[in-house]
């Protein structure tokens, strides 16, 4: 049996280095999880905001295409500006960095643009618009479809 020998490098330095590396690794992992948690929280908040905006787009758009407004009061121009701004707001949210990794982004974005084309196309902006039941049906259906997509993205 060989007598136990003390090695400075093996018995003193190695454990210190290893424990230091372990502590660094733990801190790094914690930081990465923290960053990813913050990103996730931010994305969830933005998705909630997007869901609210889509809901408002759907409601206002349906109201717009169901009614005729008195031009003298400027109500029509006011509601048109709000609708255009809301759709642009949806696009701005989706253009943010937090959404670049979201797998459903392209699908949500495509549907929002489809809804925007449905709402702000044809006679949008004209005072002699006719009530259009097909358009109203499309607005409601697309609006709910987008909200369902956003809610599903939030759960991921």
């Amino acid at each position: 049996m060989e007598p136990a020998t003390f090695s400075f490098a093996k018995d003193l330095i190695a454990p210190i280095v290893l424990s230091g590396f372990g502590a660094f690794l733990a801190l790094w992992v914690k930081e990465q999880f923290g960053k990813s948690g913050e990103k996730r929280q931010l994305r969830t908040e933005e998705l909630t905001l997007l869901c609210d905006k889509v809901d408002l787009c759907r409601t206002l758009s349906s109201e717009y295409w169901r009614n005729k407004y008195d031009d003298k009061e400027g109500r029509q121009k006011e509601i048109e500006a709000r609708i255009i701004g809301l759709f642009h707001g949806c696009n701005e949210i989706l253009a943010q960095a937090a959404f670049q990794q979201l797998s459903d982004k392209s699908n949500i974005s495509k549907k929002i643009n489809e809804l925007r084309r449905t709402v702000t196309g044809s006679n949008f902006g004209k005072s002699n618009r006719e009530e259009n039941f097909d358009k109203l049906k499309d607005i409601e259906s697309l609006g709910h479809e987008i909200q369902a997509l956003v809610v599903a993205a939030k759960r991921k």
């Binding site: 048109e80 255009i84 759709f87 642009h88 084309r117 196309g121 044809s122 949008f124 902006g125």
Partner: peptide, 9 residues
């Protein structure tokens, strides 16, 4: 701040 489709079309 946004383009309505009726304008672009």
């Amino acid at each position: 701040k946004g383009y309505p489709s009726s304008f672009t079309e």
